[in-house]
């Protein structure tokens, strides 16, 4: 990959390096064409890991975020703990779980679900807390009960921030799913691990580029959703 970096170009041999870079990409592409089954399966596994982990995380951590936003001090304390937990690196989470859950897809899913947690809890809590209290008071004043105030006013107004949390979490999950290969869960990370072992740059790119594209795709899709669900500002 480093052959593509522009700084290397000024060192001379510009033409060869650029040629090598193109060659490498072509070789990676050829590898994909030659191993369509393996590649296809890796993409499917990668997406399956990411999507299941993300959905599980939303199911678990969105409610926790809601509870945090509704319970003054305890909520604030919880958010502190969750923020602190965020600094634990993905790889560490993966290996910490190893003694308990062994190798394979299950521990990978658990780890990825946990990794998505902080972004979801923090954003859900912040989104709900920061809804304009005037809107909430007028909702109550007009005769909405507590459930209606939450579902019709507070949650819809917090949704953009919640989606931003899902976006952050999805980037984290799709990226970290690469590491799942280290504990034998498969996915696009397998190409990277074999590339590293075999010192085969071609394989590294077969893993890395699709992961990057998936991440960017998820990011922009959720970004679009976020914009669509944000109430319009002054036109």
């Amino acid at each position: 990959m480093w052959y593509c970096l522009p700084t290397h170009r000024v060192l001379g041999g510009r033409v060869e390096r650029r040629a090598r870079c193109v060659e490498l990409l072509a070789e990676s592409w050829q590898y994909i064409l030659d191993n369509q089954d393996r590649f296809g399966e890796a993409v499917v596994v990668h997406l399956r890991l990411s999507i299941i982990a993300l959905l599980a995380a939303i199911a678990i951590f969105f409610p926790i975020g809601v509870l945090a936003s509704r319970s003054g001090r305890a909520g604030a304390a919880l958010i502190g703990v969750v923020s602190a937990a965020r600094v634990v690196p993905s790889l560490a989470v993966l290996f910490l779980l190893l003694p308990f859950f062994g190798l394979g897809e299950r521990p990978a899913l658990i780890a990825l679900t946990l990794l998505a947690g902080p972004a979801l809890v923090i954003n859900t809590d912040a989104g709900l807390r920061n809804v304009d209290p005037v809107a909430l008071e007028s909702a109550r004043g007009l005769g909405m009960n507590a459930f209606q105030v939450f579902t019709r006013v507070q949650l819809p107004l917090a949704v953009p921030v919640v989606i931003a949390g899902i976006r952050t979490a999805s980037v984290e999950v799709i990226g970290s799913a690469t590491l799942a290969a280290f504990i034998g869960a498969g996915g696009l990370g397998t190409f990277i691990t074999s590339g590293l072992t075999l010192l085969d740059e071609r394989l590294l790119l077969v893993g890395a580029i699709p992961v990057t594209l998936l991440t960017l795709g998820a990011e922009s899709a959720l970004g679009g959703l976020e914009r669509r669900l944000t109430p319009p500002d002054a036109a």
Binding site: V134, A135, E137, A139, L142, V153, P231
Partner: peptide, 12 residues
């Protein structure tokens, strides 16, 4: 009916 100073309309 309830009317408040900032109108309190629902922005969404």
């Amino acid at each position: 009916g309830y009317v408040i100073q900032q109108a309190g309309l629902f922005p969404h």
